[in-house]
Amino acid sequence: MSQAVLSVRGMVKRYGGTTVLDGIDLDVREHEVVVLIGSSGSGKSTLLRCANLLEELDDGQVLLDGVDVSDPRVDADVARRSMGVVFQAFNLFPHMSVLENVTLAPRVVHGVPREVANDRARDLLARVGLADKAGAYPDRLSGGQQQRVAIARALAYDPRLLLFDEITSALDPELVGEVLALVRELAGQGRTILMATHEMGFAKQVADRVCFLDGGKLLESGPPEQVLGEPVHPRTRQFLGRIIDAGRL
């Protein structure tokens, strides 16, 4: 089996006295789509933020292509260049147009000339169905459109790994579909994706592997049919039972 793009080893994160992540081990291999599920507060978002080095670890390692990037001697800014993050609340820059949002990282981090970055951004925006919105400001877009811009922004420097943090949770139900369709397309292109989501139906269709987090521990991990269909752990069964009761699986 090929070397993992992302390896998390014994990851621990505490906020004050609360242990949010309690020794997580997780591998994401090339072209793999790994989905994190679990109730709110189970540590999904914290895991993604720690993987992107937005939060400092209290113990453990983050390895990118085998290199320990959680080492304080490693430049986190350089490590982040091979990861693209999409956030739950979009986090587009409100003072920049859509095109400027998408071209910011290529231009100022990767030194791509403006024209080249603009051309590439327009291609990307066309692929996410927003070719006509390049000059618009984020506040003028719907939530689904904003999130598709955020995905284009994360793709703009062709990262090795995509981290999606509940990217449909802030969207109206009718806008969820357009964003999930885009993620499905990216998975089909062989992108390496680690995503947290509450969309179990989507996880079932697209995930190569589903991981269930509970109380900062990775309780269960495996192919979606197994974790979502015949969960081993009683907590997983309880969680999925509630999801089924709510009519979301």
């Binding site: 937005l54 800014d77 982040r80 820059f93 910011l104 994360a154 420097y157």
Partner: peptide
């Protein structure tokens, strides 16, 4: 969250502040 977004794109502290 604006800082997180800028840092996640690989911008360093100085560029995050300035841009």
């Amino acid at each position: 969250s604006q800082l997180a977004a800028a840092r996640s794109l690989g911008l360093n502290h100085e560029k995050t502040m300035r841009l």
